[in-house]
Design a protein around this nucleic acid. Structure first.
Lengths: 192, 192
DNA sequence: TGTACATCAGTGAACGCGCGTTCACTGATGTAC
DNA sequence: TGTACATCAGTGAACGCGCGTTCACTGATGTAC
């Protein structure tokens, strides 16, 4: 095995990718250094050549977990000049997206536990929230209330994804997603 | 110190109360047996005279954490024959309630991490969710769509409480709460 | 009513395990001559 | 172009700590006589 500088950079990327995936799947607390390093094809001793501590790594990985999650949204906006609000909401509230713990919405994955996380992680969540609000607002016309309404819409989306994952009942999970979508579109039509 | 059966029952209550409070404050994972027993005025060795395991206790304490959280709502309904939807929403989205990690909404406390919890805990969350939906629906008239709309409203409330706790930014937290309240009332008026 | 004894709530020390972190060592890299 | 050496990515064993769990023991309770 090689030990060049380029390979070290690649190792670091593999560690962060594995951590971001694990964060989406099992939350911040589920990231264990030894398992992480094994998933990256290394042994745990090498970890501290890449990061000062587990906490320092978590902060970077949380950001990456967000970037992974927003990829579907970025694609929707690049494939389609002006997607409708309904299309955007469907991306989030689609049951397969809700069950996708690997590349699913990063805010949804962290919304519940960010409350216990470091200020740095909270800020990452806030930035991602604001970014997503702007994307939603873009579908809602130039109305100056768009940002305020988009804030409420994104909040409802996050609640729906979180709750439909939290209840063990598949039928209730579907109700939550469908009724939230209906409420969002109803309130949007009422403001149009 | 005494060791009567009545005192044992009282000890068990103290343990569960301390656990429920800790769940609301720090989440399921934050409940440590030793700290818990100390808060209940006992030593950790006594724990296993009351519960088979930490997991078994968590399940009971989760239910109790829910009951603690719903007390404000129960009071609102008993003090007032027919509170309006706005009054109910205000109870949940009041900033002081959002910051109240001791007796705050139990579903909001567990919504984010129930996804990683046991099926038993998930079911407790689902039951509490359904109970709360019924309370909200009661304020919305006899319309048969009330349950569906109440589901979306509660979901949005949970999202708002979770997110306003998750972002480290107090101004953003207020925006989230205010805009969610506005959306809920707007969609309600449109359906009335 | 009083005494002897079985029960059992609670104590506190100890165990085992997982996990973050450290460190002496290995061997490939890449630079200096 | 080739050789010697310093650097450093990665290894794997070990450490320390927290925490859930166990267990022998204590002493109050409450029942039997």
């Amino acid at each position: 095995m090689g030990h060049s500088q380029a390979e070290k950079a690649a190792s670091r990327e593999r560690i962060l990718d594995a951590a971001a995936r694990q964060i989406n799947e099992g939350g911040l607390d589920s990231v264990a250094v030894a398992e992480l390093m094994q998933n990256a094809g290394l042994t745990k001793g090498a970890f501290y050549g890449h990061f000062e501590s587990r906490d320092a790594m978590i902060e970077e990985a949380a950001r990456r977990a967000m970037e992974r999650g927003q990829s579907k949204l970025v694609r929707l906006f690049s494939d389609n000049d002006s997607p409708s609000l309904e299309q955007v909401v469907d991306v989030w509230l689609d049951p397969s997206h809700v069950q996708d713990f690997t590349t699913g919405c990063g805010i949804c994955a962290l919304a519940g536990e960010a409350r216990f996380a470091s200020p740095e992680v909270k800020q990452v969540v806030a930035e991602q929230f604001n970014w997503s609000v702007r994307q939603i607002a873009r579908t809602m016309g130039a109305d100056e209330s768009a940002a305020a309404r988009a804030t409420a819409i994104l909040t409802a989306i996050i609640g729906a994804v979180s709750m439909s994952r939290a209840v063990g009942d598949a039928a209730l999970a579907r109700d939550i997603l469908a009724n939230t979508k209906a409420m969002i579109l109803r309130t949007h039509d009422a403001s149009a």
